[in-house]
Write a protein that binds this DNA or RNA. Structure first.
Length: 525
DNA sequence: TGTCCGTTGCACGT
DNA sequence: ACGTGCAACGGACA
């Protein structure tokens, strides 16, 4: 093969062999192909100071999910005559060292819009251009190229889903044929002085083994994703009638996450009667692209300050309330059950996410959305930078959605789907025997009932941290004032302005319901 | 400036 | 299961 040369396929997010243009390209006309994944120890090393088992950035579920995905990727590559080379270190340094060591002429990786990867990729592209290495970095993580959409809109990202749809039009794959399935990959060449390891196990990374109840829930990897997808897609009725908003957040259903694009095409053709966006399956992917586009076009998308699209709101910094929420100790069984599911499974229904996000921020506790975002990012196995931040701004009425008087009730919202409280009983064993009349508000149960259920509120299960009626009214009042200030100052609200507003809000607080009284009320209530 | 609309609110009515 | 009132936001477009 005289024309052939060495290629490096750098895997980051798209840990798959199907529908992977970077991988296909890297295999073309190559003598040797080096499929690489770099483990950044910073991301994987146990952090004993973190609030849950895991590293400083990721919970154990996320790490486990990633490792399973890597094991699966490795086994898929082996079936094609290749294998996954796992290296450790700072990713740009490791990859640059590999490029030299293996005399790479072609570097391939999936294009990524996240700021972290934008910076990383710029470094590598710069190195490659100096070294005369070809870089192939196709857009394959999203249906559209966010940069195209932003350009079409005159340089700014669309801020509503509808305007995004108008700009986006049809995804390019609607007209193109399915990509071919790989049947063979070039061999891996000599690895020289680069230190290659196998995919580490959880134990090798220094973590305790999982309890058996966690180990079978959501297996990571493309094979499992395709299996799940296949199951769903073959159920044509399910696909045709799929409407996300109507899903029951208390049902123990499992998510369809990624790798949908090659299959959706088949779906669209074979299912005649299907719902149309925004509620169809395709609609879900377009939502994903919407958030990617806004995130890409918005500097400081992941914080409130200096974020053009984010309302400046005087959130509080109440560590006690945050921790109660995070550790499932709010005293609201619906909220706490969801947070337990998040801790244990790393996944919960999107409406359940809405409930707890609203509760933490604009609905009840008025804690900064960035705090909740951090908890989700750490614990969710499907967490995604653009979507997570976008949804937190949405739910906290900081951007995209502004009807702050529509508040999810931590009591009645769950009740309408699950009047018996089975979801709560499943995740909060302490409340297992609470009669259904009281299970959403156990603090209202007479003491005799609490005794009979072997669950004394304040001892076996916490009292509510706030009164929802009072707290939600306070939140509405604060948001009204904050919105007024944002309007008055045209969004340019300084830290001093926010401090000033905080003082005003404190002063105007209904004296009958001051902090102290509120706590007393709760003891009685 | 006004009007319509917005992936997923609640409480109460039928 | 669906409709109504509640209270009332910003973005898109005329």
């Amino acid at each position: 093969m005289a024309s052939g040369s060495n290629s490096l396929m750098w895997f980051r997010k798209g840990l798959r062999i199907h529908d992977n243009p970077a991988l296909e390209y890297s295999a073309k006309n190559s003598n040797y192909l080096y499929p690489v994944f770099v483990i950044d120890p910073h991301y994987m090393e146990p952090d004993p100071t973190a609030f849950s088992p895991g590293s400083s950035r990721a919970g154990l579920n996320r790490i486990r999910f990633l490792l399973e995905s890597l094991v699966d990727l490795n086994s898929s590559l082996r079936k094609l005559g290749s294998r996954l080379l796992v290296l450790k270190g700072e990713p740009s340094e490791v990859v640059i060292r590999c490029l030299k060591e293996w005399d790479i002429k072609k570097l391939c990786f999936e294009y990524d819009t996240e700021p972290y990867y934008q910076a990383l990729d710029a470094k590598l592209k710069n190195h490659a251009s100096v070294a005369g290495i070809e870089v192939f970095s196709p857009v394959s993580h999203t249906l559209f190229n966010p940069a195209d959409i932003i350009q079409k809109n005159g340089g700014k990202p669309p801020l509503s889903y509808q305007s995004f749809l108008k700009l986006a039009g049809q995804p390019s794959w609607a007209a193109s044929p399915l990509s071919t399935t790989l049947s063979w990959l070039p061999p891996v060449g000599e690895v020289g002085n680069c230190e290659i390891s196998d995919v580490p196990t959880i134990k090798e990374l220094g973590y305790e083994d999982f309890g058996e109840d966690n180990s079978t829930l959501f297996k990571g990897g493309e094979s499992e994703a395709l299996r799940r997808l296949g199951e769903s897609i073959n159920d044509k009725e399910w696909v045709a009638n799929f409407e996300k908003p109507k899903g029951d957040p208390s049902a123990f259903i499992k998510p369809v996450t990624t790798v949908l694009s090659p299959y959706l095409k088949v779906v669209q053709k074979s299912v005649k009667r299907h719902t149309s966006p925004p509620v169809s399956l395709l609609g879900q992917l377009l939502w994903r692209d919407f958030f990617y586009t806004v995130a890409f076009g918005t500097p400081n998308f992941d914080r409130m300050k200096e974020n053009r699209i984010c309302k400046q709101i005087p959130w509080n910094d109440d560590e006690e309330l945050l921790v109660a929420w995070r550790d499932a100790r709010t005293g609201f069984p619906w909220i706490d059950a969801i947070m337990v599911q998040l801790q244990k499974w790393g996944w919960m229904h999107h409406l359940a996410r809405h409930s707890v996000a609203c509760f933490l921020t604009r609905g009840d506790l008025f804690v900064h959305w960035e705090k909740g975002r951090d908890v989700f990012e750490r614990l969710l196995i499907d967490s995604d930078w653009a979507i997570n931040n976008g949804n937190w701004m949405w739910l906290s009425c900081s951007s995209f959605f502004y009807q702050y008087n529509r508040i999810y009730s931590p009591i009645s919202f769950g009740k309408k789907y699950d009047p018996n409280g089975n979801y709560i009983r499943h995740f909060i064993p302490a409340l297992k025997n609470m009669p259904k009349e009281y299970i959403y508000e156990p603090w209202t149960a007479p003491l005799s009932i609490q005794s009979k259920a072997k669950c004394i509120i304040g001892k076996d299960y916490p009292k509510p941290v706030v009164s929802h009626d009072y707290a939600s009214k306070e939140c509405k009042r604060k948001l009204a004032e904050a919105y007024e200030l944002n309007k008055k100052l045209n969004g340019r609200v300084s830290e001093e302005d926010l401090r000033c507003l905080r003082r005003k809000l404190e002063k105007d607080q209904n004296p009958e319901s001051s902090n102290l009284k509120r706590k007393k009320q709760m003891l009685i209530g």
